[in-house]
Design a protein around this nucleic acid. Structure first.
Lengths: 344, 344
DNA sequence: CCTCCCCATTGGAACGATCAACTCGGGCGA
DNA sequence: TCGCCCGAGTTGATCGTTCCAATGGGGAGG
């Protein structure tokens, strides 16, 4: 050690060697105290731990990463949110993921996403071994990242089913959207509604189609008609407003089940336009239980995805993936719940 | 190289030495090609770059971090959001920060925060040299992180002024909340309102007090009375609802300026309770321009913080901080803007 | 008493990059 | 002609950790 004592000592973090010297053991023993305490005799372990504590030692991440070829970081593409929508799923999910992965010893690394090129960003992180694995979200749009990541043999877990690729054999976790829509529809039927409309997304959005089947299923199993009661549009407030206005004029529904909270807010706009009171004159159910649903008067009934559970399952899958040899789990499908509020 | 050719070659990323061998130069020359291209003769540079391209080489992050004592990561505490509030500031800010810092060559590392102990998590990352610097948000609550980080001589930039510590000399970026509230109040005055109420937070919330001064300033400079028109409460929809009901009964305001969108939503609840139409019977202005403000009927007028600019300034400050020697910038105060919608 | 084995611990090498100091020519001024 | 400097590359050391093989001591078994 040629370290000058006292001179900005706090700026130079202690190393294994420092701890070893203080405890009177070798570097490797200190390393074992940190990583494999079972290997040490109890008294030695105590002495080393004391030295670690006294110096305030933490293993240097870079050195450890270099040696173990591991970063304990999970990459997550954090694409810009679309303004003007109520979609907060992503942010709530990220919070859960940060908590859960931290408990498993991993941190979340965010990188920006180019909406035009869904695979941008992944490559650089992968080649520089900056992350151990990725969590791929928004895998519904033809799934380009998933296919790309698979072709690169990159470890990753998808939040979202590989809709268009049944042969995909990467682990994934998803929420049963059809079950959610069914829950919502059954709820309105119980409340006495018979003419219940569906407002969903364009047909290409496979998630939306999935949710729609839940509505269809509930209606049919209760012997209710669906014709003329379904509508598809963009995921914007304006589209939901327009679609609900047309539905009210042409099919006189008393209830609306929507593929998103954004669309449901559009319905609330239409009701306000016509002087109708949500919850009394017409029932509305949204999807995602966004903050909007929670604070808008009189409270928007909404399908809530169990994002905490999703995060737990994803981290579990990641851990399996990073084990030697990799345990290839299949998919996990979780059930959402319905949060009932004033609009129904 | 004792690498077995062909055997899982794709799983072992190429190193500097591989590139050097292929290009017929030394390791250091390849390193220079990546980091200091000016040092190379143009033809050598071209040859090296070609080899890099052919092998698909990217510098190993861990090795670089170890040698340079730098991680190019910025730590950000990502505390759980409070359910039931409309506060989306944090998430919008994170998006901006990810984009901006990426352009500057930095990635954002999220770590969980314990609401009970604001400094938890920072220490471990700091001592293991996992991040180069932190961005500290929510520095209003007596500023414990900021003080702690300063005492540790940790490089960080705060989003938020050091309210209670004028001697703090760390760089910070903030948005002028008083100016925002003043903007909102002036707007209602222009619209013809004279009795304009303020709904803010508990006095201990210095941010709330700051915003309140904007309301006071605008009222006084226009010769309008403020007595009996101000109220303070928790930042929840229920509190805003209650506060606005009391104000309506006791002071008959025609306009409400609120310290948050959450409180403003409470006002909308009260108006709905009484059959009053926001925008016609009473004007409401929120703060933060959350997604809720954007989608709720008839559209909530709100003060929008320039979070993109905030991110830019924060990254600028971080870069100054990580320069040798550190350039200690003071604070940067940005101006918000008012987004006018249906409620005013 | 010797051998064997196991436990606890040790020393050297390696991970892949950058830093610092050095070499080798060629050009230029005195 | 000599000496100096500068441009272009090279070489060895180093960052702090973990992997691997080896070491010494002590107890059990013959």
């Amino acid at each position: 050690m040629t370290r000058v004592p006292g001179y900005r000592a706090s700026a130079v973090p202690p190393t294994l060697a420092d701890v070893a010297e203080l405890a009177g053991v070798s570097r490797q023993t200190v390393s074992n105290a940190v990583n494999n305490p079972d290997l040490l005799r109890p008294d030695t372990l105590a002495r080393v731990l004391e030295a670690i504590d006294e110096l305030g030692y933490s293993p240097n991440r870079a050195a450890r990463n270099l040696r173990t070829r591991t970063s304990h970081l999970i990459g997550l593409r954090f694409a810009p949110v679309q303004e003007g929508t109520a979609n907060a799923t992503m942010d709530r999910f990220v919070h859960s993921l940060v908590e859960t992965s931290s408990a498993a010893g991993y941190h979340v690394l965010l990188f920006p996403g180019d909406p035009q090129d869904p695979t941008a960003g992944y490559d650089a992180l992968l080649r520089s071994t900056a992350v151990d694995a990725f969590v791929a979200t928004d895998t519904y749009l033809g799934n380009p990242q998933a296919a790309w990541l698979e072709s690169r043999r990159a470890p990753f877990v998808a939040f979202g089913r590989p809709w268009d690729n049944p042969e995909a054999h990467h682990p994934w976790v998803d929420v049963d959207g059809a079950a959610g829509a069914e829950l919502a529809t059954e709820h309105l039927i119980e409340r006495g509604h018979q003419r219940i409309a569906w407002i969903g997304w364009r047909k290409e959005q496979l998630i939306g189609e999935d949710r729609r089947t839940g509505w269809t299923r509930a209606m049919r199993s209760n012997g209710l008609a669906t014709s003329g009661l379904a509508s598809r549009s963009e995921d914007t407030v304006a589209s939901g407003r327009e679609a609900s206005a047309v539905l009210l004029d042409e099919a006189q529904p008393t209830g609306f089940v929507c593929a998103s909270d954004t669309l449901a807010m559009g319905v609330l706009h239409t009701l306000a336009d016509r002087g109708l009171v949500p919850g009394r004159d017409a029932a509305v159910v949204g999807f995602d239980d966004s903050q909007v649903a929670q604070v808008v008067p009189p409270g928007l009934t909404s399908v809530r995805q169990p994002l905490e559970e999703v995060a737990v399952e994803i981290v579990r899958a990641l851990e399996g993936l990073l084990t030697q040899p990799p345990i290839r789990a299949g998919g996990v499908l979780l059930s959402p719940e319905l949060i009932v509020r004033g609009t129904s």
